[in-house]
Amino acid sequence: MNVLLVYAHPEPRSLNGSIKNFVVQRLQAQGHSVQVSDLYAMHWKAQIDADDAPQRDANQPFNPSADSKTAYANGQQSADIAAEQDKLRWADALILQFPLWWFSMPAILKGWVERVYAYGFAYGVGEHSDRHWGDRYGEGNMAGKRAMLIVTTGGWESHYGARGINGPIDDLLFPIHHGVLHYPGFEVLPPFLVYRSSRMDADRFTSIEAQLGQRMDQLFSTTPIAFRQQNAGDYVIPALTLRPEIAPDTTGFAAHVAA
């Protein structure tokens, strides 16, 4: 199978660098083909701007969505964006690896999403009607592919527990899991989390390798998170709210995951 690892850490000698190298080696040992987009090493341009659509009319105001749509449809995107889209088409699974910085992904990785997820490629596809509100949230061009996060954080696991000061880790990652991955159609796997990343020794890293190795071995067999599909009957269209009989006593992010 083909696996794309999008990696966002500026220091190759870091814990994240070691994890990335281990993941690549483990997947290749299992017979998978692996491509790595090392965003810092690539000097990836994080900001979306008019340069992403080089054939656009410079006399008109830049519109990120409309200009993205035109550039994608006409094959006129900047070369770096088109190359990453080709990697996503090739991949059977996507892994996003990053340190949790200020409760989210690093800016360079967010910029990868904003630029690569062009209109017509990752969003803006499918019929919009009173029965079907676009191919998204379980449908779309990434349907049939898998995705997961590998995330390191300096905080303790208890800091991200149900009553932890930082908030539950599932809630913090929901915008990425549900919005960045489930939205364009990926089957989203539970994340692999490394807590207290600054308190690492050889014995603990060996333990992490064993756990992560098992997750990589099961990349194509692990049961995905049971996010509800938008057009499968759980939501009222076009309001896009859950039907009253669906999880009636649950609100917030948890309501959008089937029990």
Score class of each variant (00 low, 15 high):
119 Y>S: 15
69 K>M: 12
135 D>W: 06
123 Y>V: 03
255 A>H: 05
97 Q>H: 07
129 S>V: 10
250 T>F: 08
14 S>E: 00
104 S>P: 07
254 A>F: 07
253 F>N: 13
172 L>Y: 09
51 D>E: 14
96 L>F: 10
217 D>E: 01
204 R>P: 07
19 I>P: 00
72 Y>N: 03
83 A>I: 09
244 P>Y: 06
31 G>Q: 02
246 I>N: 05
113 V>T: 04
66 A>Q: 10
44 W>E: 05
245 E>S: 13
66 A>E: 08
234 D>P: 08
216 M>Q: 00
23 V>M: 15
158 S>P: 15
1 M>L: 12
88 L>E: 02
223 T>V: 12
103 F>V: 06
147 A>I: 02
192 F>H: 14
237 I>C: 10
233 G>Q: 08
114 E>L: 07
110 K>E: 01
165 I>F: 14
172 L>K: 15
91 A>C: 09
44 W>C: 07
151 V>F: 02
87 K>L: 10
10 P>H: 08
4 L>I: 07
189 L>C: 09
231 N>Y: 06
1 M>F: 12
169 I>P: 05
210 A>C: 08
89 R>P: 03
113 V>M: 08
25 Q>S: 12
188 V>T: 06
36 V>M: 03
168 P>T: 11
181 L>S: 04
130 D>F: 15
151 V>L: 01
143 A>E: 04
247 A>M: 12
236 V>E: 15
173 L>G: 01
50 A>E: 11
146 R>G: 00
25 Q>V: 09
184 P>H: 00
241 T>F: 14
96 L>Y: 07
3 V>W: 01
40 Y>F: 15
40 Y>A: 07
192 F>Y: 13
130 D>H: 15
253 F>W: 13
241 T>E: 15
247 A>L: 10
77 Q>F: 07
59 N>Q: 13
34 V>I: 00
11 E>D: 12
24 V>W: 04
234 D>V: 11
230 Q>I: 11
1 M>V: 10
132 H>L: 14
116 V>S: 03
84 E>S: 08
45 K>P: 09
102 W>E: 04
99 P>D: 00
97 Q>L: 04
39 L>P: 04
152 T>K: 01
177 H>R: 15
185 G>P: 04
220 F>K: 03
229 Q>S: 10
163 R>W: 15
251 T>M: 11
111 G>D: 00
185 G>L: 01
108 I>P: 05
205 F>R: 06
134 G>N: 02
43 H>N: 15
162 A>Y: 09
186 F>T: 00
227 F>K: 06
33 S>F: 11
16 N>I: 04
197 S>E: 01
75 G>I: 10
